[in-house]
Amino acid sequence: MNAFRLAGDMTHLLSVVVLLLKIHTIKSCAGISLKTQELYALVFAARYLDLFIHFISLYNTVMKLVFLASSFSIVWYMRRHKIVRRTYDKDHDTFRHHFLVLPCLALALLINERFTFREVMWAFSIYLEAVAILPQLVLLQRTRNIDNLTGQYVFFLGAYRVLYILNWIYRYFTEPHFVHWISWVAGIVQTLLYADFFYYYIMSWKNNVKLELPA
């Protein structure tokens, strides 16, 4: 594993820690999109189907378990926890996320590395992850007061994607036959979705003003 990949996994983990900190400690999910969180839970469930069948490494297994457990517990907190759920900004989190699922599934049936259940589910999870941030970005645009933890959560998620691209570039030059169009194209699309957010996040940090996205 190269440094970019490890740094990518760590920023991904950090984003989850930041979100859990906000939800578990501050008991607030204000500014967080339940739609995006539900999509992530579905992404991890579909991608990690092989968790107990196909062993890669202890690191891999532990990280998969962490992402599965955290994504489902975040959804549980936002839906069921009696204090946290009251802070959920339901009225502004209106993105029709169900309409992302079917096109991603159709695309996975058409474009996959092998036409097997596991590979189709894997491709589906890659496509769905690429667009899963959309409800969160829409909610941020509608949020007048984006708190620091919410901004940091999305920033770390975006950083994780940038680092994964650097990891692929590194692997392309160091590993023979490392060509993976599905994850690369979907990963680049996913990263581009953060471009606008990154711009305003860095500007707000540079000018030391509160983060706000233009509607």
Partner: peptide, 10 residues
């Protein structure tokens, strides 16, 4: 692309 079978990335 055969090593993708292992899906070693998260």
């Amino acid at each position: 692309s055969s090593n993708q079978r292992d899906h070693d990335e998260l």
